[in-house]
């Protein structure tokens, strides 16, 4: 080894320490910068009308995004109802029945690949699968796209959580004569409950901020529309359309909607984290 002066080595070490600390602080700085801008610009756009009124015609002041708030809620809810049960059962299959079989390995592999698939590609897929045959954009198509994104996330986290449950629990249930499905639902699920819930919340948080898969599945709508088979207003596509518009009032509305979405997503994330921490403390 080359001989180097201890002073120089200590200086290099000090510089790297400083740079590393600065990078971490800068990362947090970026987070605060983004959140700060969203809050500062969003809060001025949010008033009572923002929640209760329909969008104003282009160029006119006022109006709100009540239809988009309802639409985002419905689309996400329907996606959750489709994606979560299938995802949980799929994860259960891989963790409890399949384990290391070839089928389970294939499912795991596909789930990992799907998790890495760009969300806009999922949008293209659902467009070809649902929008073309139906002949029009629809809230349902957006829900299917979001459910497709949720499915592998929920399946993988469920599998990971179920694997943490000790085998002795399963064996004691079976030894008592409990049928397999009772063992899984009432013993294994119960032991993994908070972990699974954390995963579900994170999956819902992830899709509720998605825009790309909705652009050409759900589209957007300036009207109050709750029918799943028609284009449906939603917050994220509204942000995109309003931000790209030349009207200052619409851009302000886009910031208001951004604040709403960001707050919802961050609250869900923090809740999931709190839940996970609680689990670590109690177990």
């Amino acid at each position: 080894m080359k001989k180097r002066s201890i002073v120089l080595r200590k200086i290099v070490n000090g510089v790297v320490t400083g740079v590393a600390g600065a990078a971490a602080v800068a990362g947090i700085g970026m987070l605060l910068w983004i959140l700060g801008v969203v809050v500062q610009r969003g809060i001025t756009a949010i008033d009572w009308e923002f929640f209760t009124r329909l969008p104003a015609p282009p160029g006119e002041l006022g109006g709100g995004v009540s239809n988009a708030i309802a639409g985002t809620f419905i689309i996400t809810l329907v996606a959750t109802l489709m994606g979560v049960p299938i995802g949980i059962l799929a994860g259960t299959y891989v963790a409890e029945f399949g384990r290391e079989t070839r089928l389970a390995t294939a499912i795991r592999f596909c789930a990992n690949t799907l998790m890495g698939a760009p969300s806009i590609v999922i949008g293209v897929f659902v467009y070809t699968l649902i929008v073309i045959p139906m002949g029009r954009f629809s809230g349902l198509a957006g829900s299917v796209a979001l459910a497709t994104i949720m499915l592998p996330i929920v399946a993988r986290t469920t599998e990971d959580m179920l694997r943490l449950v000790p085998n002795s629990l399963r064996e004691s249930a079976l030894a008592l004569g409990a049928p397999e499905h009772n063992m899984i639902v009432q013993v294994v699920f119960r032991a993994a409950r908070s972990g699974m819930l954390t995963g579900i919340i994170l999956a819902v948080a992830r899709v509720s901020g998605e825009t790309a898969p909705l652009l050409f599945t759900t589209l957007n709508s300036p009207y109050w529309s709750l029918a799943l088979d028609k284009p449906m207003a939603n917050l994220t596509v509204t942000i995109f359309n309003y931000a790209m518009s030349p009207y200052a009032d619409w851009q302000a509305k886009a910031w208001g909607a951004s604040l709403l979405i960001t707050a919802a997503v961050l609250i869900m994330n923090l809740a999931a984290r709190a839940l996970a921490r609680e689990r670590r403390l109690t177990s």
Binding site: E210, W255, I261
Partner: peptide
């Protein structure tokens, strides 16, 4: 990582 893509877009 939790902040939605569209918020990064706005910012």
């Amino acid at each position: 990582a939790a902040i939605p893509s569209i918020i990064y877009g706005m910012w």
